[in-house]
Amino acid sequence: MDRTLTGKTAFVSGSGQNIGRGVAVRLAQLGANVVVNGSSNTQACEGTATAVRAHGVEAMVAMGDMSNAQDVERITKAALAQFGAIDILVNNAARRPHKPFLEMSDDDWNGVVDVALTGSFRTARAFLPGMVEQGWGRIINFAGMKAIKGYYEGAPISAAKHGVWGLTKALSTEFASKGITANAISPGQIAKDGGDTQDPKRVGSIPAGFMGTSEDIAAAVGYLASPEARFVTGQMIAVNGGETT
Rank of each mutant, 00 (worst) to 15 (best):
M1K: 10
M1V: 05
D2V: 14
R3A: 13
T4H: 11
G7T: 12
G7E: 08
K8Q: 13
A10V: 13
G16D: 10
Q17Y: 04
R21C: 09
V23L: 02
A28Q: 05
Q43A: 15
A44E: 11
C45W: 01
A51K: 13
G56N: 07
A59G: 09
M60W: 09
G64W: 06
Q70H: 13
V72M: 01
V72T: 13
I75G: 01
T76I: 09
A78V: 14
A78E: 15
L80E: 12
L80C: 13
I86S: 06
D87T: 07
V90A: 04
V90Y: 03
N91P: 10
N92R: 11
N92P: 11
H98L: 14
P100T: 11
F101C: 09
S105C: 07
D108G: 04
D114P: 02
S120N: 02
F121C: 07
R122Q: 13
A124N: 07
A124D: 04
L128N: 03
G130H: 06
Q134C: 00
G135T: 07
I139F: 09
N141S: 14
G144F: 07
Y152A: 15
P156K: 00
A159E: 02
A159C: 01
A160T: 11
V164L: 00
L167W: 06
L167C: 06
T168M: 07
L171P: 03
F175W: 14
F175S: 10
T181Q: 06
A184T: 12
P187C: 09
P187Q: 08
G188V: 06
G188A: 04
I190L: 10
D193Q: 14
G194Y: 08
R202I: 15
R202Q: 15
G204I: 04
S205P: 03
I206D: 05
A218W: 05
A220T: 11
V221I: 11
R230S: 14
R230A: 15
I237K: 06
A238Q: 12
T245W: 00
T245E: 00
